[in-house]
């Protein structure tokens, strides 16, 4: 306890060091994205099921043409609030390769809920070949694979600009995007107003679609999030109670010495 002042000073330095490090690092790559409010943030965060379903629709109709989601299985869509029949129907829209059969041949069949999402390209080389050498990454964990992933993704989808700023020339096939590292991105702006007709009637503005698809992808990256936070609240409360008991017992045990 004597050196508590020194200890506090050092802890403050350590925390400041960490903060400075993190904030200056992100400046060296992509610019720091603007913070958004997400329903799944914080100690009590949950996913908005309606937003998840809309986001899935955006992924399916816009993104899945180039981006895979290979770590998610169709059966996982039940977590979005779909019935077993709906999940089966989503899967059945897709043809997947299976085999070999008894003749040694590969064949195609409708996907089942137990299958994982089919990727648009069989491998990275095919993906690059179809996209001028650029690789559209698989989106299964994209919100965890970028610093401030959810804010970044939203910014990426909503900060395309028609014209680059004065004096900046865009090479052929590149687009100006404020959020992307270097501000030049090969991805064609994927979202335009009403690109998707939402089944629940919500107006499909670009910010709305960006929010919904980011929510969906955040779920895809962390499907355990709600269970994790619920368990976390219970565990921390239990530990606080248990530690309080431990402390009381410690004081009791030591009372004959103090």
């Amino acid at each position: 306890m004597r050196n508590i002042k020194a200890l506090l000073a050092v802890s403050a330095i350590a925390l400041a060091a960490g903060a400075v490090t993190v904030s200056s690092l992100s400046a060296a790559t992509a610019p720091k994205p603007k913070a958004q409010d997400w329903s799944f943030q914080g100690l009590f965060g949950t996913f908005d099921r309606a937003s998840l379903q809309r986001g899935f629709q955006v992924y399916k109709e816009v993104c899945s043409g180039c981006h895979g989601l290979k770590h998610v299985a169709y059966r996982n869509l039940a977590a979005l609030g779909y019935t077993e029949a709906q999940v089966k129907a989503f899967a059945a829209e897709v043809e997947v390769t299976d085999g070999p059969n008894d003749n040694g041949e590969m064949f195609t069949r409708k996907a089942r809920p137990s299958d994982r999402f089919k990727s648009p390209f069989p491998n990275e080389q095919a993906a690059r070949a179809a996209n001028n050498g650029a690789y559209p990454p698989d989106l299964s964990v994209i919100t965890k694979a970028r610093p401030k992933g959810t804010d970044y993704l939203y910014a990426l989808l909503t900060t395309y600009k028609e014209e680059p700023p004065q004096g900046m020339k865009m090479p052929e096939g590149m687009f100006y995007n404020e959020a992307f590292a270097g501000q030049q991105i090969a991805m064609v702006p994927p979202l335009a107003a009403d690109a998707v007709q939402y089944q629940d009637g919500t107006k499909a503005t670009v910010p709305q679609m960006a929010k919904d698809v980011t929510t969906f992808l955040a779920w895809a990256a962390e499907p355990e999030l709600e269970e994790r936070k619920a368990m976390g609240r219970a565990v921390i409360i239990f530990l606080i109670v248990l530690t309080a008991f431990m402390y009381a017992l410690k004081r009791k045990v030591w009372s004959d010495l103090h």
Binding site: G232, V235, I236, L239, M246
Partner: peptide
């Protein structure tokens, strides 16, 4: 008991990060 109490404090910090 003192070590167990210390363990409790550590676990609160550790589990807060995990969850």
């Amino acid at each position: 008991i003192k070590d167990l109490y210390g363990l409790g404090v550590l676990l609160i910090f550790y589990m807060a990060i995990v969850f």
